[in-house]
Amino acid sequence: MNPLHRAEQAVLGAVFLDPGQLERLSPWLRPEHFYRPAHQALYGAALALRDRGHPGSTAAAGAVPVSWVADAVAEAGTRTRGVTASYAHQLVAACPRPEHAVVYGRMVLEGAIHRTVAEHAVRLHQAARADAVRGGTEETLLRADALAGALADLASRWGTDPRPVPPTTAPEPAPRATAVADGDVYADEKFLLACLAARPDQLGTVVGWLRPSDFADPGHQQLFWALGALHHRGEPVDQLTVLWEVQRRGALTHSSLDAERVLTVCDPLAVAGSAEHFGEQVVAAALVRTAAESAQRIRALAEDAAVPAGRLIGHALHALGPLDEVRQRWHTARTGPAPDKPSPPAPGRSSSGRVEAARARSRPRRTAAPTPSAASLPAVPARTPRRSTA
């Protein structure tokens, strides 16, 4: 039998044998953490009876009235089908030690953490694929926020700090999502590169938030690397300089890029457009693509039962890091960078004093004439006093 199934049975059996265990379980274990609907209904029924002040909920272990189990089964029957009194007695027999209910409950919660993280990762991946088809980001961002919120809640219930934890071993790279790298994305990337090559002055508006990794095509990544390098060094940008820079980077030996393709993309006769607009499209596509890859990586972690619950939460938050980074740059592309906060004035100095101090720093300093020392002065002969002739 599945150990998780046995753990759920043991928790319910402990609650039936010792209702006081609910006080130790209810702050962090909820009915939805159980996998089987019958178990969810029975645990929820026990909580409801306790909240209504059922006499059996305060009974000590060994003195639990029969009505406690019977009323819990009746209450659970209003929530789901298939709950019988005989099954409740099976649950009692499945509990090894009622005083170990907290340990059994943590087993149930750990299974729920794996299951919940996997479900949210699947929803995020589906949302990313759907947004890739319709060219949006709204559903992807909504599901990403839901996953982050679920991880924070699970971390609180598990009693761990919700912080990103990198895996001890390098994870296998998630496969590139082909659904988000369609022809429209490639066309936007190509047109963006053509705009930048035709009007290099637009590079200054996109280099702050656009990265080579945002391009789905490896050849386009190398072309943007070359354009960015030329812009950084202040060198001219044209077909030949871009081709030379690509060759210097060793990218022409790559199967995705050759000289003819470089010259075609950087054709000065290509129709120019707004690089900022197409840059936003490229970053949006990168956001959706990164979300799909992060979701696949998180799902693989969640489906590995050997990963402890606390470590799973930390690894999942770490896997969301690349998505958060792209999301921040996408927001900057849409709204612009946040303005810098002005530096506070120096205490005890007026504005005119600051101006004068700045001017003093910019004036050339006069070199003072060296003061001769006593040893360097020439010796003065002593004067002989004159005698009076009178």
Rank of each mutant, 00 (worst) to 15 (best):
T78G: 14
A48M: 05
R81P: 01
G53R: 02
V66L: 11
P65D: 10
A59L: 03
R50F: 02
T84R: 12
R81M: 09
A63E: 12
T80P: 12
A74D: 14
D71C: 05
L49P: 03
L49C: 08
A70T: 15
A72V: 10
V66W: 06
D71P: 05
A72F: 01
A85P: 10
G77M: 08
T84P: 07
V83E: 02
P55M: 13
V83Q: 03
G77F: 01
R79I: 07
W68M: 07
H54T: 06
V66Q: 10
S57A: 15
D71N: 06
G62M: 12
D51H: 10
A60Q: 15
R79T: 12
A76K: 11
A59V: 08
R81F: 11
T84I: 01
A48S: 11
A76E: 08
R52C: 04
T80N: 07
A59S: 12
T58A: 10
S57F: 00
D51Q: 14
R79L: 14
A85S: 14
A74F: 10
V73N: 08
R79H: 09
T78Y: 04
G53Y: 03
W68K: 04
A60E: 14
A60Y: 13
A59K: 01
V64F: 08
W68R: 04
E75G: 10
P55A: 11
A61Y: 10
P55S: 05
E75D: 12
T78S: 12
P65K: 08
L47D: 01
A61D: 01
A85F: 13
A72P: 06
S57R: 01
A74R: 15
T84W: 07
W68G: 00
A76Y: 09
W68P: 03
V83T: 02
G56E: 06
E75A: 15
G62N: 10
T58H: 07
L49N: 02
A60T: 11
R50V: 03
R50Y: 01
A85I: 10
T80K: 07
S67A: 15
T58S: 06
A70K: 05
L47Y: 10
T80D: 09
A61P: 04
A74Q: 13
G56R: 01
S57H: 00
V64G: 00
A59Y: 02
T80F: 04
R81L: 13
L49K: 03
T78V: 00
A61S: 11
A63K: 10
D51T: 14
A48V: 07
T78P: 00
V73A: 13
V69I: 15
P65V: 12
A48I: 03
P65N: 09
G53T: 00
A63S: 09
A59N: 02
G62Y: 12
L47A: 01
A59W: 01
D71W: 04
E75C: 06
H54Q: 07
A60G: 13
A85D: 13
V66N: 00
A63V: 09
W68A: 01
G82H: 10
G56H: 04
S67I: 11
H54W: 05
A76L: 12
G56L: 05
T78W: 05
G77N: 13
D71M: 05
S57C: 03
H54V: 09
A61H: 11
S57Q: 00
A85T: 08
R52V: 11
V73L: 04
D51R: 14
G82E: 09
A48T: 15
A63P: 00
A59C: 04
V64M: 07
G53A: 07
V69C: 07
P65C: 11
S67P: 02
T80A: 14
D71T: 08
A63L: 13
A74P: 00
